[in-house]
């Protein structure tokens, strides 16, 4: 049982993985481990720098990219007011962290497991690969728009069988979709785990449901509390009922969620 907590921890490093253009930065933020012994890959953490005043009242949710005895790492793209401020943190700054939150991905041993990552959706799979009991059964497919150097892909590709496809033009999209379907069909009898933008997830969900393939989807929503209280991040489950992505997810069985 993973015990959650809320702690103030120090920033250890802020690393920029590459810049696609001046407006978007890819950041690997490493903090002190907030006293977590373990986590389930696919779980997330809420981060709110201690020096933030009241202007931005919410923390920001990020998948846990890595956790070791000393550090917690998250990976994000600068998109809005929160992430642009987080990217300007300095080593030694204090951040309030609460987690680990949510449910996480399944990690059945000795099971062919296809990791389907779209863009920033690669973040949780770094720790997934590092923590898996039988990583030789894992295969990573990464679809991305900006160059590979912006993501932690190469470090992951050293550990598992991996391939990446970049979307340069609209014509690339059908080829990527076709490749995802091929890989899912080849993985029949195993499990597919997906994290990425909604259209990417829909492709995977449709193919999984149509083919009766086992798949799990990790959803992203903006959140206020991260713990299931505010009901601001709901999605509809298989029965059309609203459930909190933060507390009942973020990982859902492909046939048990409406995208």
């Amino acid at each position: 049982m993973v015990v959650r907590n809320c702690r103030e921890v120090k920033v250890q490093s802020v690393r920029f993985l590459g810049t696609w253009d001046e407006a978007s930065d890819f950041v690997e933020l490493t903090l002190e481990n907030p006293g977590w012994e373990s986590y389930r890959p696919g779980q997330f953490a809420m981060l709110r720098p201690k020096h933030w005043g009241l202007e931005l009242p919410w923390g920001r949710p990020f998948s846990i990219s890595r956790l070791d005895a000393e550090t917690l790492t998250v990976f994000f793209q600068v998109i809005g007011r929160g992430t642009s401020r987080l990217a300007r943190l300095n080593p030694g700054d204090e951040v309030v962290v609460w987690g680990p939150l949510g449910n996480g991905f399944s990690a059945p041993p000795e099971t062919p497991t296809l990791l389907l990552a779209g863009g920033m959706g690669i973040a949780p799979f770094r720790g997934y690969i590092e923590n898996h009991p039988t990583p030789e059964f894992l295969r990573l497919f990464f679809a991305h728009r900006v160059p590979l150097a912006n993501y932690p892909y190469l470090a992951m590709a050293e550990k598992v069988r991996a391939e990446a496809m970049q979307e340069h033009t609209p014509e690339d999209l059908p080829r990527i979709i076709e490749r995802i379907r091929e890989l899912m069909d080849e993985n029949h009898g195993g499990i597919a785990l997906a994290c990425g933008p909604t259209p990417f997830m829909r492709t995977i969900q449709e193919h999984a449901v149509a083919g009766g393939l086992r798949a799990e989807l990790s959803l992203e929503k903006s959140m206020a509390c991260g713990v299931g209280a505010c009901l601001g991040c709901v999605c509809k489950n298989g029965e059309g009922k609203h459930v909190q992505v933060c507390a009942r997810g973020p990982v859902f069985q492909a046939d048990a969620v409406q995208l």
Partner: peptide
């Protein structure tokens, strides 16, 4: 009650708007 459709919350300067709809 199922409450309102999404989006239901938005962060605003020093506050937030919500329309959860008493789910």
């Amino acid at each position: 009650r199922e409450g309102n459709a999404m989006p239901r919350i938005v962060e605003t300067p020093c506050g937030m708007l919500n329309a959860i709809g008493i789910q």
